[in-house]
Computed example of a mutant assay.
Amino acid sequence: MNFKDFLQKFQDIERSLQKETRGIYNVSFNAKRATPIQKDIEAVENAVITYIAMYVRGFHLKRRNKGKGAEHIKLHLEKGSEGEITLEELLNLGNSLRVYLKNFNEAFIDKNGAKIYEWENDDEVRFRVITDIDEQGHTSTTFHSSNEIIISFYSDRNLSQRMEFKNPKVKAYYENTQSQTSILNQAHKRKQK
């Protein structure tokens, strides 16, 4: 691949990722009803229509404190809210899911059949995305049909206790990472003495 082809491919990926981010923003704050979340970077590179899920406007019922999609997730954007997320974390949702899939290959499926994606950032904040089947079979002529939608996205910020990972693979991964970090920190302290 020559430099010109590489540059064009890079620009195409960048445009596609910007479009995804814009779509998430527009579903959350404007009139857009739904946007696809790319499953993997190869899909972005090759313009393959494969999506992990649709990010939809959704709803939130205050009385029952229940909902799904952007209207429900926006509650977590409020400063100091339980499960607080930042706007940057929301807009970066597609990339976070791709990184999760690169590391763990597939979502954890809970007893109700919902798919769960979990991870921890460099500041040790834990996140969870829940997707499920849309009973209404949401489809759109502008997007590949998908009946999997993002129900919720939140962190363990401002929760009464730290989020426990439901996926045993994720739990083991972060326990191992913490053990390695602890060993490296102890070695570094010994070296400084």
Rank of each mutant, 00 (worst) to 15 (best):
L87A: 07
L75P: 00
Y174H: 03
F165A: 08
N121W: 03
D123S: 12
T181Y: 14
K102G: 03
L184M: 15
Y154W: 05
G69L: 11
Y100L: 01
S96C: 14
S160E: 14
E148L: 12
T177S: 06
P168F: 09
L87P: 03
Q180G: 03
S96R: 15
A187T: 10
K171P: 03
W119N: 06
F143A: 05
K111A: 11
S145F: 10
S160N: 14
E71N: 13
G80P: 01
F127D: 01
S145E: 12
S146F: 04
E124C: 09
N158M: 02
E106S: 13
N95T: 09
R128F: 01
I150H: 07
N121P: 03
H138P: 03
E78H: 04
E84R: 12
K169Y: 13
E89Q: 15
D110N: 13
S145D: 13
T131Y: 02
R126S: 04
N176D: 09
Y154C: 00
E124D: 15
I149V: 05
I133M: 07
L90V: 02
Q136M: 07
R126Y: 04
K79L: 09
H76F: 01
A114W: 11
N176I: 01
K166M: 14
N92T: 07
E88Q: 14
I73A: 01
Q186A: 11
F143R: 07
F104S: 01
G137S: 05
Y173C: 00
E175N: 12
V125P: 00
G137A: 05
R162V: 15
F108W: 15
Y174T: 00
I149E: 00
N176H: 08
A107V: 03
Y154E: 00
R162D: 13
E124F: 11
T141E: 14
Y117G: 01
T142L: 15
Y117T: 02
K111H: 11
S146I: 04
A107G: 06
V125A: 02
S81H: 12
A107T: 02
G137C: 03
I150K: 09
T131L: 02
S140R: 14
N105W: 08
I85A: 12
N112S: 10
